[in-house]
Design a protein around this nucleic acid. Structure first.
Lengths: 263, 263
DNA sequence: CGCTAACTTGACCCGTTTCAACTTTCGTGG
DNA sequence: CCACGAAAGTTGAAACGGGTCAAGTTAGCG
């Protein structure tokens, strides 16, 4: 498999309708994300949509947030996948966090990281850059938005701890399964997963750098997950075949994501 | 080796003077901790000392913060080591963070963790419980204190990410070495390490649960570190024999601790 | 002065890595 | 539109790091 098509092409006519439904959220993902964490008034939700209409596109592997501008601002991912990683002496790379549509992060805290911390697009992405003032306005006008962003930050922290536990001592099968459980819920929260099926454009190398395994072993583990009929993975579409069994096997408990409804 | 002596005995007469100097900070560790992160006025420093005079003691393995009281308060560790861990199905345990003297954490965020998140004393400890009002007063009277606590929180987050990178893909020797480098700097910052030597009361089982190895392998790795003359470890006293070599071997770079002077 | 927690050691086993070749997929340029 | 090239995925064989089990030894504390 190869890297996903760019937006120009995928936006063109002739697309498979189902694929579009799965990758194109019906509502603004930033709004949906915060709504998944805290109750939002219609006015607050509308406000979020208004400030996230102007975005720019970047291709796979683009380095997001290299510049010093936008101090105090916030980056919002509207479409595509990105990741936050750190390089280690020896050429290794550790992915620390994924960003999926609706996720955002503070540019100030990003800028005080070491230069070996990088934010990179894993697929073609669309991002909105909110200026400090825009964030300040939104949070002052709508306390629920401030609360939502605070909770989102706490979830981020909790997620890193969860990954630490996962990588610290679970065998390969459970590690990867746990990651898939998390992605499924996060994507479902913003309307990008239905019927336990979602678009998973992450390469096996990226997965390896996430869970601390070699890409060869990730490949074999994915085959094992398929062999045991726990998932299907054709093309870029991942389906979890029996959610409760799968979650139990992975030792996954969704509490740390703080979703208001976990379905 | 056995678990460390309780405070009653260690405070009694007949102690080795050097050992006392190493385990008894000259100044208030909470003050020193925040001073190591941000400049503090004398008034702010004195204020910190004033609010941390009343503490209570707990023995090794005591579960800290079980109660629902103290909402909005803050727990400050004044003496001894503690850790934050999570248990996993299968009996495994993953230590997520260490607390050394001067470290503190917010009881609100602690209380919204799952019940399988535990804060436990690794040695006999003395802790101060600051009520919400005490924290609010201190941060309002002295903005530098608020800033210091904010930075301390950011350092905590950065430390978890650092551990993730460490555990994600470094061999045993470097994993443990990296942890020792971090502990040395954190203890030095509060005056509990001198000449690259410090009191390391963490058992090999605890180390194992921290770095994601078996205790047997931790034991062998420690022997290997000694054999290579990188450290000495007699009783509970750890000495790093050649700091710059050791840090380089461990891939350790102290930036993430945000210490004002790294020496 | 014995009990118990912590540490140590040896042998064997298994999960995972490494290396290297090969196949498939897909984007691009001719 | 096809062919080429590069990125992604797949496979096998061999080596190794680390795990497990089980039996010790040491060292503090009561």
């Amino acid at each position: 498999m190869r890297q996903p098509a760019g937006f120009v092409k995928s936006g063109a006519a002739g697309d498979n309708a189902q694929a579009r439904a799965m990758t194109r959220p019906k509502a603004n993902p930033f709004r949906r994300k915060l709504e998944s964490l805290v109750p939002l008034s219609a006015a607050a939700g509308d406000h979020l949509e208004e400030i996230t209409t102007i975005y720019d596109s970047h291709p796979t592997r683009a380095n997001l947030v290299p510049r010093e501008d936008m101090r105090g601002g916030r980056l919002v991912l509207m479409e595509g996948f990105a990741c936050h990683y750190r390089t280690v002496a020896g050429g290794r790379r550790q992915i620390i966090a994924y960003l999926v549509p609706g996720d955002s992060y503070d540019l100030d805290t990003a800028l005080q990281n070491r230069p070996d911390h990088v934010m990179m697009a894993l697929t073609p992405v669309r991002i909105v850059r909110l200026a400090r003032a825009a964030v300040a306005d939104a949070t002052q006008d709508h306390p629920a938005i401030a609360e939502g962003l605070r909770v989102a930050g706490q979830v981020e922290e909790a997620t890193v701890r969860e990954w630490l536990v996962d990588i610290g001592g679970r065998p390969a099968l459970e590690r990867i399964a746990h990651l898939f459980c998390e992605l499924e819920l996060r994507l479902r929260a913003v309307g990008l997963a239905e019927a336990d099926r979602f678009d998973m454009p992450i390469t096996q190398c990226d997965l390896a750098d996430t869970v601390g395994l070699s890409s060869v072993h990730v490949n074999r583990t994915l085959q094992e997950l398929r062999r045991q009929r726990l998932i299907t993975l054709s093309g870029r579409t991942l389906t979890i075949l029996n959610r409760s069994t799968f979650q139990a096997m992975a030792g996954f408990r969704p509490d740390y994501l703080r979703l208001r409804e976990t379905i």
